[in-house]
Every structure is written in C-alpha cells, then in structure tokens.
C-alpha cells in the first residue's frame, strides 16, 4: 500500500448536508463509512502566464455517499469496493467535544488504513491507497453560536493525522469544472429480485377472479418469456458474464421480433386472402343481382299511372 498524500477532499453539498442532518437527528453519537472515488488529475496548464508551467498532478478524493450507525455499535465489515465506488475512509460525529481525533478515532483509523484488503486504486493511476480518510463532525460547546456543526477532514499518513481542507462542491458557475468532468457512472442498485411471492392480497380473491387473474398472468408471462426480471441481476458481475448475458438477451429479442414479423406477414396474407374472398363474393352477389334483374326485366314492372 502506498502512503500518497491527498491534495483535495471534495464532498458534494448534498452529501455533507445529509451527513450533518443525520448527526443532529441521532439520539447519540454516530459513526460510519465514507464512500466515493479518488482521481489523479493533471490540471490543464492553459494559462497565458508563462511561469505557470508546473503540471503537478493532484490526487483528489470525492466523497459521494456514506453509511452511518450509532457509535456504540461496531462498524460492520466494509462492502467490497467497485470500479465506481471505493471505501475512502470513515467519519465520527459526536456532540460537544473538541475537534480533535480521540483514542477510538485513532485506533479505528489505524486499523482501517492498515487493512491490506481494503486498499483501492484511484482512477488514472496504479497506486494502491488505503482508506485513510477521517472526517470528524462535532457541535460547538456554546449553544449561542451561529453555526451548529464543526467538521474537519484528516488523512492518516505516517502515524499521524494530517488535517486536510474539505471542499464542498455545489451547483453554480464556480463549480462548472466539477460538472464538466462528471462521469455518470453509478453503481447498479442491489435489487431484491424476489417477484410474485406469496401475496396475502391474492388469497382473499374469489375463485373466478383468481382464474381470470391467472389467465392474464399467463398471457403476460408468454409475452415476457425469456426476459424474466431476475435475469437483470445477472447483469451485475464481471464483464464477461455481463456481455454474454446481454448478447443472449439481444439474440432472444431478435428472435422474438423475427417471430412477430413472421406473424404479421402471415396475418397480412390471411387478410389479403380474405379480401380476395370478399371481392369474389361481392362479384357473385353482383352477378346474382344482375341476373335477377334480367329475369324481372321480362316482367318489367308496369308503372301504371292511374
């Protein structure tokens, strides 16, 4: 694992607000994990000034989400990190305490940053960073102050807490650069794929209603054959499984469209056939009518005018 200093820690205004709200609404103290991603970015030295030619790359960590629980409960084993979301570190929120890491904060941070399996790789790098971020949230001792919370970000590096400034990312022109570089990669939600379980509602229904419902369901199932919803869950996983599954779905869809078009063709032919039948029938009717007219013509109706 590398001890690489983070240059910036970013957090979106919404995430921070949600974290502060969670802290203030909790009965006691809380703590939890911080998730997000880290990127090694090389700032574009597009400047008129000739002296600004230093292109040092910056390691920027962005906190996008968190998980919180009362601090008397131990932190659960952290979830495995994915490409888009990594475990960056953790936070501790407690009321009316000095804004300094406590004994528990330091032991937890040390243990997190020493766990080899939790290391993640920032984008554009081949570094391996431990989850060394620590965010401390407290409330001021005096109640009369204007602000309700105080916070400080740290990176645990070389056996010490390095204070890092926390940059809050909001919407607005001054944050355009953040949104320009925004990549819409979102972790697929963990879906509970249990559908149509034993439904208590269904048991109350009467027999024939149940029958008709079953019939509807059967029809629906026919339509959705091969596209069951639990297949969606198979889309999560390694890239190979994902591609295979998607190709399979695509093939099925093509087959289905093929079948449908064939069906349409057949019905079209049938309609045409029927149309032909109809014209023949019409012609026959016409013939019959003419013939009957002719027969009546012999006995032309006398238009007697009295």
């Amino acid at each position: 694992m590398d001890d690489f200093p983070m240059d910036k820690i970013q957090i979106s205004g919404a995430t921070l607000a949600s974290l502060l709200h969670r802290s203030s609404s909790a009965a006691g103290d809380i703590h939890g994990y911080l998730f997000g991603h880290a990127t090694l970015s090389t700032p574009n030295p597009l400047s008129d000034h000739p002296t600004t030619t230093t292109t040092a790359s910056l390691l920027i960590a962005t906190i996008t989400s968190f998980l919180s629980l009362p601090s008397h409960l131990p932190l659960p084993p952290p979830p495995p990190s994915t490409n888009s979301t990594a475990l960056l570190g953790w936070f501790s929120s407690r009321r009316k305490t000095p804004l300094r890491p406590s004994l528990k904060d330091s032991t937890t941070t040390i243990s997190l940053s020493k766990t080899q399996s939790l290391a993640f790789t920032p984008q554009n790098t081949n570094l391996s960073l431990p989850p060394s971020l620590f965010l401390l949230v407290t409330t001021p001792f005096q109640d009369q102050l204007i602000h309700t919370h105080e916070y400080k970000g740290f990176q645990y590096m070389g056996h010490a807490f390095e204070p890092k400034s926390l940059i809050i990312v909001n919407i607005g022109p001054s944050f355009r650069s953040q949104y320009d570089s925004f990549s819409p990669s979102v972790q697929f939600p963990l879906m509970d794929c249990e559908l149509r379980g034993s439904n208590a509602m269904m048991e109350d229904e009467t027999g024939d209603k149940k029958m008709s419902r079953l019939k509807d369901q059967k029809q629906l199932d026919n339509c959705a054959e091969g596209f069951e919803i639990d297949r969606v869950s198979k889309l999560m996983g390694s890239e190979a499984i994902y591609t295979g599954e998607l190709e399979d779905l695509y093939d099925k869809m093509l087959a289905k469209i093929d079948g449908l078009s064939r069906l349409v063709e057949q019905t079209n032919a049938k309609v045409l056939e029927q149309l032909e039948d109809v014209t023949i029938l019409g012609m026959l009717v016409l013939l019959c009518a003419i013939r009957s007219l002719e027969m009546n013509g012999n006995r032309r109706p006398s238009l007697n005018v009295h």
Binding site: A27, G28, H72, T97, R100, S102, L103
Partner: peptide, 18 residues
C-alpha cells in the same frame, strides 16, 4: 483529558480525547 461516555448507551466503553 476529556472522557466521552454515551448516555444513550452507558454500557458502551468510553472514549478519551487527549
């Protein structure tokens, strides 16, 4: 040293801020 207990869960171990 500040000793931090948790009144909501007094069974939990205290924390210390040096």
């Amino acid at each position: 040293w500040d000793v931090i207990y948790n009144a909501m869960y007094p069974l939990a171990a205290p924390d210390i801020i040096f």
